[in-house]
Design a protein around this nucleic acid. Structure first.
Length: 705
RNA sequence: GGACGGUUAGCUCAGUGGUAGAGCACUUCUUUGACGUAGAAGGGGUCGCAGGUUCAAAUCCUGCACCGUCCACCA
């Protein structure tokens, strides 16, 4: 015992992890009991792990280790996400920066090779980092959203939805990223505030306002509210000759209730091809659609002398011409509005009318609502349920086709105007597969069951689905959680999980949101090297309530490094002082330890404390459980109970009782602390035990061993 | 324009009706046989503002302010 170092050495953590992993107990096949399952949110293979990942790994590992110790057949299935658009945009950016090339210069095959090399490198690093966090997940079942098994699941899901009429191809207005040259879904659009110039233009007898004069070439409808008295003399359908940018056009008056009479002059012209709201007005009144800007942001022949110019360059010239023609009434320089951008590392969104694949969500809304409203799925914290309902109310058909190359290619083939959808290509020659790929969230939506071997009816699927807990950030409630519910309800007619635990975002010290694309991520591995994994885990858990953001401070982590050392030294004290206590098997037959009433009371309090911790863990209240454990160990056990045990140990009449009390206190607390601080607790346990703390039974009242 | 969250000690946050709490930071002391990554003691808050309910409000109600987030077809 003299050999135990005075300071806890966290550099032994990787060895402890090897011990766990080689034991086989990460794999539920080696466990018994009622299944308990969590699917790990697969990190994107776009970068390294950041502290947000460290947080979810910690939270899920706490639940998993707690479950395992309580005798559950525990499965935590790890994996990674190909993150189609995020990964592709990263590679494209690198390619352009390093070689001045675009993906089109390389070609589809060569480009994909590069992406795969990159993804593999990142994957290997991520997996190493997940291990370093102490995650007790089953590596034998690891999955990737783009591997063979998951690809089959994706094609199968697509076909089933296609056959059910839930997936259709339609020509509609979509969000076009003219930089990445692909569509993105409504949810991926990020609106950014911007101050711009707002132009008031003369349009015949009217004055219309626009922030985008370069889209106005084809405007031949002038729209106003039917009840606007200022324009009561103009009739719906009435035609007027007006002088416009490139000469005379015939304008048609349209009365539509969506026009806000309070805004500007109460009159507007519309550009149905490049504006979602205008598109709807045009649809309602059966108007013409004309494309003005191409996929690259270049003006088409309709722009006359401005054709073939990029909109950025053309705008000032167009304004100049309008001014020269006397059509420019005035300019409001401080007009604030929002511009749409692609949140996944792309560029400005330019609405376009395009033929794309969509998921018809109208019939799927009902089950999505019902599962949560009925309480079959519980969201923690509860306030997010309302946000979820509101999102579903506003949900429109989900555009799932992307014009990028990295991802699941759409399982549809064309030939002579015929369409064929299946999980395999048609046997006869001559069919050409749709070149588009699927939204990455389409494959993520299948995650709870694609990971278990679906569409095959595997034992794993029967055993572990629906999963118990889905733990993730509130920022992907819509992207991911909602889509999983949608997919699982339709394809399996079952919920994907019972409880959704939403954690907040870890922010940097300036409270800035960390994100993969912003590049302000903090490397948790650096923190681990200095303070140890247990310290980081505690720093991320204490004070972290579901749904609330948490700024990360190094001071806090340092405090828990000190706590790990405190645990180590308290253990050292106990172990050094119980050497002459007979082991449980050799007690009895005259060797029974008679507990003093004082020590009995301490153990009764321990029982009470244990059940409080258990209750908090059952309620997903990890922050308070961790805080309580910290206080109890340090300020009750170390400061008081250990100090008061010193004279008892010196008293031959009380010594054995104190020894038994101390070792019981220590072992129970090691078990309670283990889900939170697995490394230091296991390292201490290993000093005197041949088996693993990881699979000890969770302490319960009266069954203390 | 809607909705939600926050506003408590220098900092980060707990605390949902009954004499203000924790961690870190700060002050003083302890030269140490478990640990100085420690121990003991201590200072520090009119709990955003204004009303109201109550014997009693940080805690419930109303309004306001500021910060933050989400949603929404203001051309």
């Amino acid at each position: 015992m003299q050999g135990i170092p005075k300071t806890y050495d966290q550099s032994q953590e990787p060895n402890v992890y090897k011990l766990w992993e080689s034991s086989g107990y990460f794999n539920p096949d080696n466990l018994t009991g009622k299944p308990f399952t969590i699917m790990m949110p697969p990190p994107n293979v776009t970068g390294d792990l950041h502290v947000g990942h460290a947080l979810f790994l910690t939270l899920q590992d706490i639940m998993i280790r707690f479950g395992r110790m309580r005798g559950r057949k525990t499965l935590w299935l790890p994996g990674t996400d190909h993150a189609a658009i995020a990964t592709q945009s990263k590679i494209e950016a690198d390619l352009y920066k390093q070689e001045g090339k675009t993906r089109f210069n390389l070609g589809r095959e060569e480009f994909l090779k590069r992406v795969e090399v990159y993804a593999q490198t990142k994957h290997d690093n991520i997996v190493r980092q997940i291990r370093r966090m102490g995650a007790s997940c089953d590596w034998s079942r690891e999955a990737f959203t783009l591997d063979e098994q998951r690809s089959l699941a994706v094609r199968t899901a697509f076909k089933k939805m296609y056959d059910a009429g839930l997936i259709y191809r339609g020509k509609r207005i979509v969000n076009w990223d003219s930089k990445l040259k692909t569509t993105v879904s409504d949810d991926e659009v990020e609106w950014k505030d911007e101050t711009a110039s707002f132009y008031y233009l003369r349009y015949g007898p009217f004055v219309i306002g626009t922030a985008r004069p370069e889209t106005k070439f084809g405007d031949k409808y002038v729209v106003m509210h039917p009840k606007d008295k200022r324009y009561k003399n103009y009739k719906h359908g009435q035609k007027l000759e007006v002088e416009w940018i490139n000469g005379k056009v015939t304008a048609t008056v349209i009365k539509d209730e969506t026009v806000d009479p309070e805004f500007g002059t109460g009159v507007m012209t519309i550009t149905p091809w490049h504006d979602a709201a205008d598109f709807e007005i045009a649809q309602r009144h059966n108007l013409d659609f004309e494309q003005i800007i191409d996929d690259r942001g270049v003006l088409l022949p309709i722009a006359g002398e401005f054709a073939n110019q990029h909109i950025k360059k053309a705008r000032p010239l167009i304004v100049e011409k309008l001014k020269a023609k006397g059509l420019l009434e005035k300019i409001d320089e401080s007009y604030s509005h929002r511009v749409a951008t692609n949140s996944r590392g792309g560029g400005l969104i330019e609405p376009q009318i395009k033929e794309q694949w969509f998921v018809d969500v109208t019939t799927l809304k009902e089950p999505m609502l019902k599962t949560v409203k009925s309480g079959k799925i519980k969201i923690i914290p509860k306030r997010f349920e309302k946000i979820y309902f509101h999102w579903i109310d506003n949900l429109r058909d989900w555009c799932i086709s992307r014009q990028i190359w990295y991802g699941h290619q759409i399982p549809v083939w064309y030939k002579d105007g015929k369409t064929f959808c299946d999980t395999k290509p048609p046997a006869e020659p001559g069919w050409v597969q749709d070149p588009d790929t699927l939204d990455t969230w389409f494959s993520s939506g299948l995650w709870t069951f694609s990971t278990l071997g679906w569409p095959q009816e595997t034992t794993d699927l029967k055993t572990f689905h629906p999963t118990d807990v889905l733990e993730t950030g509130y920022d992907i409630l819509f992207f991911w959680v909602a889509r999983m519910i949608l997919m699982s309800e339709f394809l399996l007619d079952d919920i994907p999980f019972r409880t959704v635990y939403l954690h907040g975002l870890i922010r940097d010290k300036d409270r800035q949101k960390m994100s993969k694309t912003k590049g302000n991520v903090i490397d948790p591995l650096g923190i681990i090297d200095t303070y140890g994994t247990d310290a980081l885990r505690m720093g991320l858990i204490v004070g972290n309530l579901p749904g609330n953001d948490l700024p990360l401070s190094e001071d806090k982590v340092r405090g828990y490094r000190n706590f790990a050392n405190k645990v180590w030294n308290a253990a050292r004290f106990v172990l050094q002082n119980i050497i002459d206590l007979p082991s449980p098997s050799r007690r009895g037959a005259g060797g029974e330890v008679v507990m003093t009433s004082e020590d009995k009371k301490i153990l009764r309090d321990l029982d009470k404390f244990t059940s409080e911790i258990t209750k908090k863990l059952e309620k997903f209240d990890f922050a308070h459980a961790a805080e309580d454990l910290y206080h109890y160990f340090w300020h009750t056990f170390a400061d008081k109970i250990i100090e008061e045990s010193k004279p008892k140990l010196a008293d031959p009449k009380k010594r054995a009782s104190a020894q038994l009390m101390l070792t019981t206190m220590l072992e129970t607390q090691l078990k309670l602390l283990h889900p939170f601080m697995p490394f230091v607790t296991e390292a201490i346990w290993q000093l005197t035990h041949k088996d693993l703390l990881m699979i000890q039974s969770w302490p319960t009242k009266g069954k203390r061993k």
